[in-house]
Amino acid sequence: MTHLQIQASRPYTVYIEPGAVNRLTEVPAAHEADQFWIITDQRVAELHGTTLHEQLEQCFPEKTRLLSRVEPGETSKSLSVYQTLLEDGVKQGATRRTLILAVGGGMIGDLAGFVAATFLRGVPFVQIPTTLLAHDSSVGGKVGLNLRWGKNLVGAFYQPSAVLYDVTFLHTLSDREWRSGFFELLKHGFLARPSFAPALLGLDLEAVKQLPMEEWLASGIAVKQRIVEQDERESGIRAFLNYGHTFGHAVEYASPGLSHGEAIGIGLVFASLLEDNERQAEQLVGLMRRLGMVLPKRHPFEVYLDFMKRDKKNNASIRFVLQRQGSFTLEEIEETRLRDTYDQTVRCLQWD
């Protein structure tokens, strides 16, 4: 049982334990709600819907439950699906006192959180993550949607009322979902002081699945907690949480079917080479192979450059989070250097 208190503009608790959904009884917004509006995807509904409804019935038998389901996958984090959810909420009778329960991975958390931030000018919501990857996205209050030009180009800062992280939900994850979440955990390992990344770099997929996950999730979330509490709206050091993401997001957007975390793995290799840290890049490549990752189709450098230019963190220049002598900085990188690093990345990954 692990509880973390996030001291954001709206403080809340992250509960990490088996059966964490039962902690909803400790969330004031749940008692104040007239009803619950569950937003999830069809896959999660099939896997965990029955358990979730039983838990809610036990905790709040008097509360009505609304339900909206979307297609699994990043394509649902779109303006069209967002509009459908808003209209579905109106049709089902959601009010300003309705509590949204975002049940699923990072896509659902971002999508349902943005619905919560904007529906009737804002209603409370609770994050109920069901994936390893969502340990990153469920904490910190970033919610939003993608556009065809890039990830998370529409969004808001909107803190949840609580995060209920039932680690038993992880037992149903596919190998790809384990890989995807693990690369985000590894990113937090690099950012931690002292770093816990070295303890993860030598693992294979089966070893990852055997980790005492409650402990490791808490370690990853604690890194994000420390940064978000200092810089909730990303005016400074919160940008460091994008380590590996600038090139990683470009790869993700150019590679339909590639998971977010897998793309971040490639992005971490790219960032390591920008740092002239070839040893770390080689360790990451070895890790990717042990985890069973299959590289996506490679595109010309110009394709990734175009996506990097549209990244919401960049202005006229392209900026990367890089590690220098034990600390992190945000640096502007010239196009010629990016091209050279791309060529290095292709060779390091043996990316045909």
Score class of each variant (00 low, 15 high):
165 Y>M: 11
162 A>K: 02
255 S>M: 10
105 G>Q: 05
109 G>N: 09
337 R>Q: 13
236 G>D: 15
153 L>M: 15
280 Q>F: 14
258 L>A: 08
20 A>Y: 02
29 A>H: 13
212 P>L: 13
186 L>Q: 03
61 P>V: 09
194 P>F: 11
282 E>L: 08
84 T>M: 09
125 F>H: 02
293 M>W: 01
98 T>M: 10
172 T>K: 14
344 Q>I: 07
23 R>V: 09
98 T>Q: 03
346 V>K: 02
342 Y>Q: 05
317 S>Y: 07
40 T>Q: 10
219 S>K: 09
69 R>W: 13
332 E>W: 10
121 R>E: 04
10 R>Q: 12
279 R>S: 13
183 F>W: 09
343 D>H: 11
102 A>N: 01
316 A>P: 03
89 G>W: 06
297 K>C: 09
21 V>D: 00
259 S>W: 03
191 L>R: 01
188 H>G: 10
199 A>G: 06
40 T>C: 11
168 T>H: 08
253 Y>D: 06
58 Q>L: 15
314 N>W: 05
254 A>K: 14
249 H>Y: 12
182 F>A: 00
151 K>I: 05
227 I>P: 02
126 V>P: 02
67 L>V: 14
188 H>V: 11
215 E>L: 11
209 K>H: 10
334 E>K: 13
53 H>C: 13
114 F>H: 04
196 F>Q: 02
216 W>H: 05
54 E>N: 13
5 Q>V: 12
135 H>W: 04
171 H>W: 07
274 L>K: 00
252 E>G: 04
248 G>F: 02
349 L>H: 03
164 L>S: 03
214 E>R: 12
271 A>G: 05
338 L>W: 00
204 D>P: 03
211 L>S: 10
332 E>P: 07
146 N>H: 11
12 Y>W: 07
37 W>R: 13
203 L>I: 15
49 G>Q: 02
98 T>Y: 04
183 F>M: 03
